[in-house]
């Protein structure tokens, strides 16, 4: 890619990433949440890869990392649901944390935590799909 693209991608990626995090942590207050924010986070990674990375070996290493973090994130979501069973009312997905005041950032109990984990999961999953496609393309060209 040309210098202009690389520089602009460098400048923008940080903002995109921050915006994704903003969407995720405000999931219980504003529209959006884990899924939408996770897609934006994946977008930040994909922008970087499109602007800089074309080295398939390096990408394969990244793919391993992203697929592991995907599995771990969704497993943690399940474990939080099971934790709800052991803490409090013996029901899965029980919201056991104090719920706080409506409208504040730290409120709604366990829901923001689910949002964060789902954000990581979606970002990792979309990134894994993208990497799988791009690695496949590199292998075809060789």
């Amino acid at each position: 890619m040309s210098l202009i693209v690389k520089k602009v991608a460098q400048l923008i990626t940080g903002f995109v990433f921050l915006y994704g995090i903003y969407i995720i942590v405000h999931g219980h207050l504003t529209p959006g949440g884990g899924f939408a924010g996770g897609a934006i986070l994946a977008g930040a990674y994909i922008l970087q890869i499109l602007a800089f990375g074309r080295d398939p070996l390096h990408l394969k290493k990244k793919e391993t990392g992203s697929s592991v973090s995907e599995s771990v994130a969704i497993f943690l979501v399940l474990m939080m649901a099971v934790a709800g069973f052991f803490i409090g009312a013996k029901v899965f997905f029980n919201n056991y944390l104090p719920t706080g005041k409506i409208g504040e950032l730290v409120s709604a109990g366990a829901i923001p935590l689910y949002n964060v984990l789902i954000g990581i999961e979606v970002a990792a999953a979309l990134l894994t799909i993208f990497l799988a496609l791009i690695i496949y393309k590199e292998e075809i060209e060789e």
Partner: peptide
């Protein structure tokens, strides 16, 4: 089964 499905890849 869901938990096992997610542990296996790790």
């Amino acid at each position: 089964p869901l938990a096992i499905a997610f542990i296996i890849p790790v």
